[in-house]
Amino acid sequence: MKEFIYLDHAATTPMHPSVIDKMTEAMQNAYGNASSVHQLGRRSKGLLEEARQVFASSINAHPTEIVMTSGGTESDNMAILKTAETCAAQGKHVITTSIEHPAVKEPISELEARGFEITVLPVNQEGRISVQQVIEALRPDTILVSVIYGNNEIGSLMPITEIGQYLKTLDHQVIFHTDAVQAYGTEVIDVKEQGIDLLSVSSHKINGPKGVGFLYVNRKLSLPAMMTGGEQESRRRAGTENIPGILGFQEAVKIRMQEKNNVRAAYQDLKDNFLKEMDNSSIEYAVNGSLDHSLPHILSVHIKGVQAEKLLIHLDLAHVAVSTGSACSAGNVDPSPVLEALHGQGHPAVAETLRFSFGYGLTREQVVSVVLILEKAVAFLKEK
Rank of each mutant, 00 (worst) to 15 (best):
R364C: 04
T73C: 07
D141L: 07
K82Y: 07
D21K: 15
R256D: 07
V350F: 05
I189N: 11
A308Y: 02
L40E: 15
V320D: 08
K22I: 03
N60Q: 14
L354R: 06
R114T: 04
K254F: 00
R236H: 13
E25Q: 13
E340L: 03
I189P: 04
K276S: 11
N207S: 15
Y166E: 04
L291W: 00
V322W: 02
G361N: 04
V367L: 02
N60A: 12
V19T: 07
Y31L: 05
R264D: 05
Q28F: 01
A330D: 09
S36G: 12
D76V: 11
V54R: 10
K220V: 09
G230C: 03
A30G: 01
D269W: 00
I5E: 06
P107W: 09
R237Y: 06
E25Y: 14
V94Y: 05
G155D: 01
Q133I: 08
F274I: 01
Q133A: 14
Q194Y: 08
G359E: 08
A379D: 08
K376H: 09
A56F: 06
I80P: 00
E284A: 10
Q39M: 10
V174I: 08
A349L: 05
K168C: 05
Q165T: 15
Q133N: 08
D179S: 11
Q53S: 11
I135F: 06
S357L: 02
T83K: 08
K82E: 10
I5F: 03
R114E: 12
I298G: 00
N29Y: 11
I246A: 10
L295A: 09
H16S: 12
A308R: 01
T73Q: 13
Q366V: 08
R114P: 00
G72P: 00
L215P: 02
P102L: 13
G185R: 07
P102D: 14
L138F: 05
